[in-house]
Design a protein around this nucleic acid. Structure first.
Lengths: 187, 187
DNA sequence: TCAGCATGTCAACACCCGTTGACTTTTTTT
DNA sequence: AAAAAAAGTCAACGGGTGTTGACATGCTGA
């Protein structure tokens, strides 16, 4: 790897960590440069602009590959891994945090939305077949994440709790079989 | 109403509209002042600071009163009204949008979280009895809102669709009866 | 060795931010 | 009508923002 490739990589890693947790507008280029041990000017040089670096980090998001799945049920495991297990590994932020921390900013929410659609939304639609159920599963994951990370609600099992993953899995399966429109009758 | 009360009111209305839709850090005091036809300096004068105005707008959020409910089931109607019907009235932003558009900003997410807890979270806990189910209902509403407003997912019935409200109601009722930990068995 | 390119450094740019204090205007009270 | 209080105006402050271009340094091939 050439020298410049190495500094590009450093900027990407630092940008990823900061952008993904605090959102585009809440992180400054100088802060990223300092975290990457690199001069600020190099961000504009190598990525064109702050936004360019942001979009480059989005490219590093893991994606769902429809080829890997034969049934919708198999998807649940992958989603739990992608949205819950992986983010807990050191250095890997939650994909959902990105969505949330950029929700209010029109400039950054658009590339985030596009990345989500391309990397997860469309593959999930393809696997599940029904866009409504696919959307509902996304909604379930997002809802729990917001409740846990933003509102800091008690009651939902803590992420450290071994029951947490099972609970999310159950919610996803419920979403998968949830009868949409008209409303279901419940006891 | 005295003259100053009127301009305070104008600032609150403008701040409400802008803060609640675009988030604290994505709105400038000059923009609010212009929208309220008022000088910028008056924000600091009347509310102490930008943050002071922000917190003052949060006080105008509608609240849930436990006195009004005898059963958890009655709550579903109120939540749908509060989070779905009311925001569609002109000038009233969604309470959920506030949560989302401030999720990435540590400074503003704290007062938002506090307001949420005081106005909705605790009353809901009181009515439902089980904090886990209460949290799950919040999560359901949030998830659907993010899917609809942020990710712009297709598949979930559009807000204009008469089926939309019934669908949300069904989701809330499902959350209310959803068996948490251990995972439920589904067909 | 020296030219040429790649890479990194630095200071400055124009701009926007929230906040402040001195000032003028308007309203109310004496 | 004069004095006092309230309300509003304006310019400037220090500081942070992303971006740029001139310059210095490093490395590489002729």
């Amino acid at each position: 790897m050439s020298k410049s490739e190495k500094t590009k990589e450093n900027l990407l890693i630092a940008g990823q960590r900061l952008f993904w947790t605090r959102g585009f507008s809440n992180v400054s280029v100088r802060e990223i440069a300092q975290a990457a041990n690199v001069d600020v000017a190099l961000i504009s040089r190598y990525f064109g602009s702050k936004r360019g670096l942001f979009e480059a980090t989005l490219e590093k998001l893991p994606a769902i590959d429809p080829e890997d799945f034969e049934s919708a049920e198999q998807l649940v495991d992958a989603i739990v891994e992608l949205f819950v297990t992986a983010p807990r590994r050191p250095g890997e932020a939650s994909a959902l945090t990105i969505i949330l921390s950029n929700a209010g900013d029109p400039e950054s929410s658009e590339p985030v939305r596009e990345a989500f659609r391309r990397k997860w939304g469309e593959p999930m639609d393809r696997i599940i077949g029904d866009p409504a159920k696919s959307a509902l599963m996304s909604a379930a994951m997002i809802g729990v994440s917001v409740a846990e990370k933003v509102l800091l609600l008690q009651g939902i099992a803590a992420p450290g709790d071994p029951a947490y993953e099972a609970q999310l899995r159950a919610m996803l399966e419920a979403a998968l079989t949830f009868e949409l429109v008209p409303a279901v009758e419940l006891a």
